[in-house]
Nucleic acid binder design. Structure first.
Lengths: 127, 127, 127, 127
DNA sequence: GTGGTCTAGACCACA
DNA sequence: GTGGTCTAGACCACA
């Protein structure tokens, strides 16, 4: 379910955070669902349990999950989870557009890009 | 001309690379222009010259500048410099959109975002 | 009568201890009253009876209740129960004030805070 | 400068966070000051550098300090640092009063307590 | 079993 | 030198 890129410059624990958020976003994991146990997931992914711990701590801090010692970790009940994710996603896109606006890209370029990406996406899901 | 954010988590040398590219992109520095000497720039920015060296080496590897031992560094003559930058910029934006497509954003969201950013930009320059 | 917050980082057994003390403090449970049976309460709260056991053991150690094997647990006859609770409460508040005195809070700040809390409380009960 | 209580139930890294905040609050460490190096402080306190790392990461998340790889950790420039600390302190006191209001303490009790603590404090500093 | 903390020690990128 | 990440392994409290 979760695939890691050990060559990436992005730390493993951050990759895990992102994957968990994605799994929640696509509805694979729902509010209240119990996540895999820290040590169990660590074994599956072939990494140390402390790395999972670090990822889960960050996710709890963000309000994405709730971890209770002795019981487990659970997808947070935050009703607006999805909206928060969407807001953060759009903010990230905005930042990257702003940063690159200096390289003579036009509004039209970005719009076409968006259409291209979403068209691809549609095909990908249709397939 | 180049301002660094020492608090940023982005490495100083990467910040320098980006600033150099921006200065070329906006036409401040043109093909063939000589860049400031490594040690001189280091003194101005108040950083170690090794950090500038690292940035310039990366820029040379990308073909953005040419360094000639004993003479200095020069903006590359690559005619298509601007187009390469633009292509890279669009690729980066595409990557970020693709990564975030899972968070229930729509093509329309991104298009509106683009318009918003470019409208702001226009105002900023108009001012 | 007893409500638990399973998401709280406060251990379940500590939550139970506090609730029992509160119920005694407000006069709901009086000296000599029999507490619900461990297993019964466990069933009601949907938790393991060992957790209740742990809470009751702690309460007995503090002299709040008396457990008699084969008969059950009873609210301790300590005449001064209420006063002990009050003393402990004030000690806890004192500790927290002392700990925070370094953050440039004033005596006046704390006094106003107290008035605010008690005014709220009064309203809450009046409602 | 920083003393730890290894017997305490409070994790070491949390104790460190609190001590750092206190040192900033009392003006011992000022905005922009460089904190002791992670490994250096670890050696001094006789603990593992990872524990300091964990504390500093938490402090950075809270905006109390800024850590820059290769350079060091610095007291954040947040102008309102002191006010934030004070606000958090008062919130903690409020919470503890509210929690204990059930134990028949009166507003007057708390006010007297406050006076007592601040009188002691004054003497302590005067001595 | 479950999460949380801590150590000892290694390796990395950056300055 | 400086912070950051990761592992292997231990120990703890709680359920």
């Amino acid at each position: 379910m979760i695939e890691l890129d050990f060559r990436s410059r992005k730390p493993i624990y951050e990759q895990i955070c992102e994957k968990v958020k994605e799994l929640i976003a696509v509805g694979e994991w729902k509010s209240g669902d119990q996540l895999p146990a820290v040590r169990c997931l660590a074994r599956e992914l072939g990494i140390n349990h402390n790395t999972i711990q670090k990822a889960f701590s960050a996710l709890e801090r963000e309000g994405v999950i709730n971890s209770v010692a002795g019981k487990g970790s659970f997808v947070s009940a935050m009703a607006s989870q999805t909206e928060v994710f969407k807001k953060q996603a759009l903010e990230e896109i905005e930042r990257v557009i702003e940063k690159n606006v200096v390289y003579s890209i036009t509004c039209e370029d970005v719009k076409q890009l968006a259409e291209h990406v979403f068209a691809k996406e549609k095909h990908g899901r249709g397939a």
